[in-house]
C-alpha cells in the first residue's frame, strides 16, 4: 500500500497479513520521529502540567 510521509513523500509499505471483517487493520502513520509524542503523552495521558513537561525537557529527561 502507499502512504504519505512528512519527510519522504509517497512511500510504499507492506500492508497487513490478516483479513478481519469487522475490525480491519489500518495504516495511519509510519514510525514516529524520536520523541514526537513525548509531550502529548505526558500531558494528555499522564496528566503532567506544561511547566512540569518544560522542566523535564530542560533537564534532559525527555526530548
Amino acid at each position: 500500500m502507499e502512504l504519505d510521509h512528512p519527510s519522504f513523500g509517497k512511500v510504499k509499505s507492506l500492508g497487513f497479513p490478516i483479513f478481519m471483517s469487522d475490525s480491519p487493520a489500518r495504516l495511519q502513520s509510519l514510525a514516529p520521529c524520536k520523541g514526537q509524542h513525548s509531550g502529548q503523552v505526558l500531558h494528555d495521558l499522564l496528566g503532567y502540567s506544561e511547566d512540569a513537561i518544560n522542566q523535564l525537557t530542560s533537564d534532559g529527561v525527555i526530548a
Binding site: V11, K12, S13, L14, F16, P17, I18, F19, M20, S21, D22, S23
Partner: peptide
C-alpha cells in the same frame, strides 16, 4: 464475532518483510 482469514501467501510475504520492504523502498 467476526470473519478473519490468514493465508499462506500473506504469512510468507511478511516473513520476507525486510527484503520485500527494501525493494518497495
Amino acid at each position: 464475532g467476526q470473519y478473519l482469514d490468514a493465508s499462506l501467501y500473506g504469512a510468507q510475504l511478511f516473513l520476507a518483510a525486510p527484503y520485500l520492504q527494501s525493494f518497495l523502498a
